[in-house]
């Protein structure tokens, strides 16, 4: 069984666990803890090591999705998680501009590990306070060619779209298959 891996990252509470949960065929293996510090007011549970989901492609290929922990104090996991990934998604809570700078920091950190394809998902587009994807792109100071896509992580169709867009970016930079490798 060959496995390929993509990473879902983003600031605390941006929707990473929801994103993976929407498409994974196995219940997301979560490592969540009750929050004990003052981020408590935002939510009850947070991911402390990573989330993990799976999509079976066919008999001998599976796609694994790894979600990073959102809180800064767990960022020692990031580099480890990004090892061998095909590409990554940075989820941003579009309704919380106070997290945009952190999103940018995360993006830069991941880009620093290796030149890996990525897309930005402007999440929570169903929230009435959500910034539109195009505005978010400017707010994050991103280059024109970077894909910033509207997203609702709780909806499977939306998550599917994001993953497909990421795959198209990956495809652009993928090497041609060597002819003999394609044995039937």
């Amino acid at each position: 069984m060959q496995t390929v891996k993509m990473v879902v990252t983003g600031p605390f509470n941006s929707g990473k666990t929801s994103f993976i949960g929407s498409v994974s065929e196995i219940p997301v293996v979560r490592t969540e803890r009750k929050i004990t510090d003052n981020t408590r007011s935002v939510k009850e549970q947070t991911t402390v090591a990573m989330d993990f989901g799976r999509i079976t492609i066919d008999n001998d290929l599976a796609l694994y999705l790894f979600g990073t922990p959102g809180q800064k104090r767990f960022d020692f996991m990031w580099e480890i998680l990004s090892e061998g990934m095909l590409g990554f998604v940075v989820l941003v809570d579009s309704a919380r501009p106070e997290t945009f700078r952190e999103a940018r920091r995360i993006l830069d950190t991941f880009r620093g590990y290796s030149p890996t394809p990525f897309v930005i998902a402007a999440n929570k587009q169903d929230d009435e306070d959500a910034w539109p994807a195009e505005d978010l792109k400017i707010a994050l100071g991103l280059d024109a060619e970077v894909k910033v896509l509207p997203c609702i992580a709780t909806k499977k169709e939306s998550v599917k779209e994001i993953l497909l867009e990421l795959l198209y970016v990956i495809l652009e930079s993928a090497p041609e298959d060597k002819a003999p490798a394609r044995k039937k």
């Binding site: 390929v4 066919d58 796609l63 497909l164 795959l167 495809l171 041609e176 490798a181 394609r182």
Partner: peptide, 12 residues
């Protein structure tokens, strides 16, 4: 390789 990526895309 592209072959693998196309399989993933097709399935998704």
């Amino acid at each position: 390789g592209r072959g693998v990526l196309l399989r993933v895309i097709d399935r998704l």
